[in-house]
Structures are given as C-alpha cells and as structure tokens.
C-alpha cells in the first residue's frame, strides 16, 4: 500500500483537538499521529476522552477546535457527504457492539459497504464470504448477528470493517464485551488482517492485553494525550 508515502509523514494526524459535550470537556488539546500500516493503541482510564478522540479522527464527530488531517486532507473543511464517503471507503469502524444490523444476515452485513459503493449483489456477497472465511466465520453466512456468540459477531464486524480495503481501521474497545480467549481470537484476526492488507489501526482500549497487540501505545488522561510515546 505504500505508494509514494514518506514513512516520516503520518497518514492521519491531529493537533490541538478540543471537544466538549455540554459543559463536560472530553478533549482538551489532544494530538496524535498515526503512521501508515502501524497499529497504535490508545489507552487510558474511562472518561479520559479515548472514544471522543477516535470519533474526531474518524470524522464521526467534528472537534470544537483543532485540526485532523488524513493523507493531506483537512477533515474539518470537508462537507458531511465527503466524511461519510471517507468512512465508507478509506476507513473501517469496529465498535464494542452494535455495528451489525440485526435484521441482515451475516453475509449481507459484511457486503453492505460494498453495496453502498455500488458493487452488484452477487459480487459483494462473494467478496463478503471470502472475508468471513479469512476471519474464521464459516458456514454461518446465513445466520443473523443475534444468533452468533460475542466473539463471532466481532469477527464479522471486523470483516465488515476491512471488506472495502480501508487504509485505517478504527476499533473502539473491540474486545470490551469478550472473555480472554474470544478477545485473543478477535485481536489476532485484526492484527493479522491489518498487517496483510497494510491498513493502519487505531485501537482504543482500556485493556493492556489488548493493547499489547499494537506496535505502539499512547496514553490519555483528562482529554489530552500524555507525552509518553515509547516506540517499540
């Protein structure tokens, strides 16, 4: 995936982000750099602004102040339509739960981003099945998300996030509701798929064992990213 990218120039970078919900500040001048192809863990206590940072970086939330630039594009200057398109094509999103549509089959859930991109039903279905197989979800394509275990559902969510070949995957507590073995399967699958496809991952988690799948860790406290950035 590295076309003419300089490894020193981050793929996604944010400076001086502030964001408040009502009177509660969630971010107070947070900054972060995500390089192409790396897995970066954002850890910190609950309420430290991890999820809000992820939302700002993914263009889901517009920060009150500060800049987010992705591959030279300033997200604050983009209209909502372009942000949605970015999230559909260049970004993949995985949440703790809730990103699968309960009424759609597992296969259709994974195929949905492709359908939104204008791909035909048959092709999209086939591509979805391939990705499901890569994540070890086999023979369950016709089930609904409610019929899956938590770990399986998260692997389906990963397949949905990666099916469009995104350059950045945003994962917000992807193992938050899982036990340690299911977490391990999900994280191994995520790390492997990201490395194979060259996607960068921004991994928000409060769990050190999950964060250990990353190449690097930054910590958040009180809405800022602490200066500690120890590179592996």
């Amino acid at each position: 995936m590295s076309k003419h990218e300089d490894a020193a120039v981050p793929l996604l970078s944010a400076r001086g982000l502030t964001k408040a919900y009502g009177r509660t500040p969630a971010l107070r001048g947070a900054g972060i750099d995500l390089r192409a192809g790396e897995i970066l863990a954002v850890t910190g206590p609950s309420g430290s602004g991890k999820s809000t940072l992820l939302h700002c970086l993914a263009g889901i939330v517009r920060p009150d102040e500060g800049t987010v630039s992705y591959a030279g594009e300033r997200l604050a200057e983009q209209p909502e339509r372009r942000l949605g398109e970015l999230r559909r094509t260049d970004f993949g999103v995985v949440f703790q739960f809730g990103q699968l549509i309960p009424e759609l089959t597992v296969r259709d859930n994974v195929a949905l981003p492709l359908l939104l991109g204008g791909l035909g039903r048959a092709q999209a279905g086939a591509r979805a099945a391939e990705w499901l197989e890569r994540f070890g979800v086999r023979g369950q394509e016709e089930l609904r998300p409610g019929e899956l275990s938590g770990g399986q559902a998260q692997r389906v969510a990963l397949a949905r996030a990666l099916v469009t070949g995104p350059r950045v995957v945003f994962a917000d507590e992807p193992t938050g509701a899982l036990d340690s073995l299911a977490s391990e399967q999900v994280m191994t699958a995520l790390a492997r798929a990201a490395r194979e496809s060259g996607a960068a991952v921004l991994l928000v988690t409060h769990d050190a064992q999950t964060a250990a799948y990353a190449d690097r860790e930054v910590r958040m406290a009180d809405g800022t990213v602490t200066p500690l950035e120890v590179t592996a």
């Binding site: 191994t188 790390a191 050190a208 964060a211 250990a212 990353a214 860790e217 602490t226 500690l228 120890v230």
Partner: peptide, 20 residues
Amino acid sequence: LRAQRAAHMARMRELTAVKT
C-alpha cells in the same frame, strides 16, 4: 510508574508476538 509501564508494555508486546 510511567517508565515501568512502558517497559511492561514492551515486554507484553514481545510475548503477544511470540504467542500469535
């Protein structure tokens, strides 16, 4: 504690790589 955390995390990343 910050420095020790960084060292712990580095070791955990190594172990995770070995394990996976």
